[in-house]
Design a protein around this nucleic acid. Sequence first.
DNA 1: AGCGCTCTTGCAATCGATTACATATTTTCT
DNA 2: AGAAAATATGTAATCGATTGCAAGAGCGCT
Lengths: 344, 344
Amino acid sequence: MKTSTLQDVARVAKVSTATVSRTLSNPDVVSESTRRRVSEAVKVTGYRINRAARNLRTQRAHSVLVLLPNLANPFFATILEGISRHLSQLGYSMLIASTKQVHDSGERLIDYLDDARADGMIILDGGLAPEVVEMLAAAPQAKRILFACEWVDGASFPSVRCQNRQGARVAVSHLYELGHRKIAHLTGPEGNVLMHTRMDAFVLEMAARDLELKPEWIIPGDFSLSAGCHAAKAWVAMQDRPTAVFCASDQLAMGFIAELSRRDVKVPDDVSVMGFDDIELAEQFIPPLTSIRQDRLLIGETAAKMLMERIVSPDVEHSSSAAVLPVSLVTRESTAPLVAAQTE
Amino acid sequence: MKTSTLQDVARVAKVSTATVSRTLSNPDVVSESTRRRVSEAVKVTGYRINRAARNLRTQRAHSVLVLLPNLANPFFATILEGISRHLSQLGYSMLIASTKQVHDSGERLIDYLDDARADGMIILDGGLAPEVVEMLAAAPQAKRILFACEWVDGASFPSVRCQNRQGARVAVSHLYELGHRKIAHLTGPEGNVLMHTRMDAFVLEMAARDLELKPEWIIPGDFSLSAGCHAAKAWVAMQDRPTAVFCASDQLAMGFIAELSRRDVKVPDDVSVMGFDDIELAEQFIPPLTSIRQDRLLIGETAAKMLMERIVSPDVEHSSSAAVLPVSLVTRESTAPLVAAQTE
DNA sequence: AGCGCTCTTGCAATCGATTACATATTTTCT
DNA sequence: AGAAAATATGTAATCGATTGCAAGAGCGCT
């Protein structure tokens, strides 16, 4: 009933435990005949390696911690899927925790790396407290930490991100080509790197095209549906209304459109709206949402890949410290050419 | 730079490693004075326990595997949050894998329990292949497996679920009280336990109220948005249209409403629609969705709690083998009283 | 035959914590 | 005072796999 150990296999195969271990982890060094005997013995005994023992001996946890701001945000699910896919290929497991929870429990993040629970860490939260970031950066394990999606300006951790600036540029360009000249931007939360990056690129692109940009056309939000609703009220109240709104997230766009439709403002007839992220729901929304697509599966896989490279060979110099993944415009029905009626 | 071990602490505190270990895990048995000396030494050395070593010695992984059908489904996020919350309180970690991925990688589920990677397993997927279920049930570790949300009929694993039948009854009752007599049910995927349970309870409740139920009013679906869209087409095509539709999930309801609105059918004016689950989005949807609420955080916490009890004391008889959590009706704007126009 | 080489294999130490058992010390009770 | 009980601490085995080192076997070459 008890699971069998290397010793059991060794006994059955009539070899030493060393030989069994080698057969399993490095088959080339053992002879053909013992290899067969051992394989047979493994089958007979139903041997499964004991990971706790291996982890202790090899000083590896064979798992990676993924840290999210908030587990309940569907945006992260596909990224996790990508991470998990790559990790399990390499025999690694994925541990999940939320920054909030870790913080509340009084645990220090670095402990996960310190106490042999995880070999590395993928952080999807750029909003860590500065003292936490500093502590991580100073730790000897800092090389096994990687940021994905979000990042911390000034810190030197490797990261995976999408072309946020390019996304904002493409968005403006798309709306411009539809004839829009008065374009607003509904932003993410103050202090968030993505919010700043996207807003910054938006402002620059507007300027590059010589488009007027009234201060009130930068509407502060926070990526959430309800912020989108609030923004809709602000938009309605403007005397000089933009004819198109570029939202920093799909959720914002959905909230914005939902509130407008409650007030009988039609999208895209009365105003064009686009989002960012291209979450699953964007396609099903009414109207289907024009958005900037991020390949979240690829983000996850790339993050896992980069991190694992650094874990497996900590000493080699790793080329790129930031992978920037492409975004693309997905045109759907929430944006439309400017019509005369709107400009009146 | 190397992390310090029990030995280091023992040396500094001038006691044996045994004493240090006791001080940390069972402080009551050591004297006040050594306790202080050890605590001091722990602080000085910056000691962190090595979990791999402890896991090996105690034969515990101090982690639990959570198995989902699909990581990308936002429905599970809150449940995970609940599980993780409870686990981390007890110093346990949460490992995540998707059934599909495990299957594709050729790994056997039971291996996670066998090889000291996890002490227990919470399965959120009732659709496991029968041979997999059988294998799990036959394993000596079967007592450390628990199902949540979904379950497998006939298998004897403990489980956590919500009052699915009660939910269906409350739904019919709600629509009935609004005056509806012709009520359709849009189901989940064929073969899914939730689908069958909810449909079954729906049919019984309709019969109990002596309401007519045409076969075509049971519309097959699969919990997804797009199935909802298809169902809407079916509804439009009916000669004798139900005035209310009870959907087996919120996503179904949203897809259903979205497609109707494309065809200028108004909800709730022309037809009342309600969902099941009360996902975050239900409230933001247009119109805000009437639904049957499941407390997903509680489901997660309860599942973790029940499983941990069984892991910590495997020998005591555990009272309830199935926790059934309450559901509640959340009335919003997608359901309305029947009006004369609809009956024509 | 004897030497050196390669290829296999075994011995035994090791990773770092836990804990049964033994021992030393103090307290309690008659 | 002396025995018994209670308390505190140390000794050393143990969990199960990995791996440096040494040794044996087999081979070719001079």
